[in-house]
Nucleic acid binder design. Structure first.
Length: 360
DNA sequence: AAGACGGGGGG
DNA sequence: CCCCCAGTCTT
């Protein structure tokens, strides 16, 4: 256990000032205080690895399209992915629907009011199970995310590596001890809200407005920036790609990515590994049986994922005929906009496509 | 235990 | 341009 008795005793002073601060400073969120466990669940899945401000619009649109858990369970995957388009980590959406189907089959369409049963559902790990249990049902389960570990590591000036599973367990144990009777959901959200609004990463915590400043060991020692402790990040590999926006009249060529791996199941433009010259690209397209009427070079684009960097050379080609190519389809633009989810990585080229269609 | 899996914000 | 953020599932 990384927290000794003395540290845990002084941490007991956290809840009262934290809850008082939360009651005055919590942000409005459409999914808060709605007393709807489906809203809580959808929002918590969206909030994994994602900031509140980015989630708001996605949440509103998602709930408008799929107002109940049964609607989610019944919707088709294209609709689901379109609602998730641009949010990232697309397996979150797939698992959300898998779990919704299980809840309809096994739990009569209502999320179980039980931490272990929540944890057993796809896409719900320890954090999310704790969040739903405490926020939607008032169950005194801890919910420890990166915000919580940043706040608690600073308050306790703890230098254990927060990426280690054993260390996370100790933070969960500490957080569990601190939950005040009857206010589990508020306390958990208060810890995260403080991390998001005051106890900021990037080396600029706003300790002047922090309700915990006086009892924060890191602040009193003037070393807030030393916490939390994490190992150095791994290197990123670089992949060069050639992306060709293929157009024929009102049609554009799209292919569906494989069901597993990066950007699984999303749509993309014709592409090849490596940076191809105009001539190489023309030859490659002609090898697939496609006659090219004209070819335009688009700007290079870069997209950075967590562990991969795409360096893309773009082209836009007008095809003589919408010849079927292996693995893809010719789609009309309205059809693309309504029902085909493209990854954010290709945003530069889908914007080019929209521009060229308006003024070729 | 380590790697895969997106996208956004700030300096 | 660089940096940072960090839940869940798979292997």
């Amino acid at each position: 256990m990384i927290f000794n008795r003395e540290t845990r005793d002084s941490a007991a002073a956290i809840p009262a000032p934290l809850l008082a601060w939360y009651d005055q400073n919590k942000r409005e969120m459409a999914w808060r205080d709605a007393h709807n466990s489906y809203y809580t669940w959808v929002s918590e899945i969206m909030l994994q690895q994602t900031r509140v401000e980015a989630v708001r619009a996605y949440f509103d649109r998602f709930i408008a399209a799929l107002p109940t858990l049964r609607d989610l369970a019944a919707c088709d995957e294209e609709t689901l992915l379109k609602l998730w388009e641009g949010l990232g980590y697309y397996n979150r959406a797939r698992n959300l629907q898998k779990a919704a189907k299980l809840v309809v089959e096994r739990h009569g369409g209502e999320l179980p009011r039980d931490y272990e049963q929540l944890l057993a559902l796809p896409g719900i790990g320890e954090y999310t199970a704790g969040a739903i249990a405490s926020i939607a049902y008032g169950i005194p389960a801890p919910c420890v995310d990166g915000n919580v570990m940043r706040v608690l590591s600073r308050v306790t000036a703890n230098c254990a590596d927060i990426t280690l599973p054993a260390v996370k367990r100790d933070y969960q144990a500490l957080a569990r001890e601190l939950i005040p009777a009857g206010r589990a959901g508020d306390f958990n959200q208060a810890l995260m809200e403080l991390g998001a609004l005051v106890c900021l990463p990037n080396g600029l915590p706003l300790c002047g407005g922090c309700p915990l400043a006086e009892l924060c060991a890191a602040h009193r020692a003037g070393c807030e920036l030393d916490y939390p402790v994490k190992p150095p990040k791994p290197e990123r590999r670089i992949e060069e790609k050639t992306v060709c926006v293929l157009v024929c009249g009102e049609l554009v060529y799209l292919q569906k990515r494989p069901e597993g791996g990066l950007l699984a199941g999303l749509w993309e433009f014709w592409n090849r590994p490596g940076h191809l010259s105009r001539d190489e690209l023309c030859r490659e397209l002609e090898r697939d049986g496609l006659a090219v009427r004209s070819m335009h070079t688009l700007k290079k684009a870069k997209h950075i994922f967590t562990h991969i960097e795409w360096r893309m050379q773009g082209y836009l080609a007008y095809a003589e005929q919408p010849i079927p190519l292996p693995g893809g389809e010719w789609i009309s633009l309205p059809q693309l906009r309504e029902g085909h989810a493209l990854p954010g990585a290709l945003r530069a080229y889908s914007a080019d496509l929209e521009r060229w269609v308006q003024s070729p």
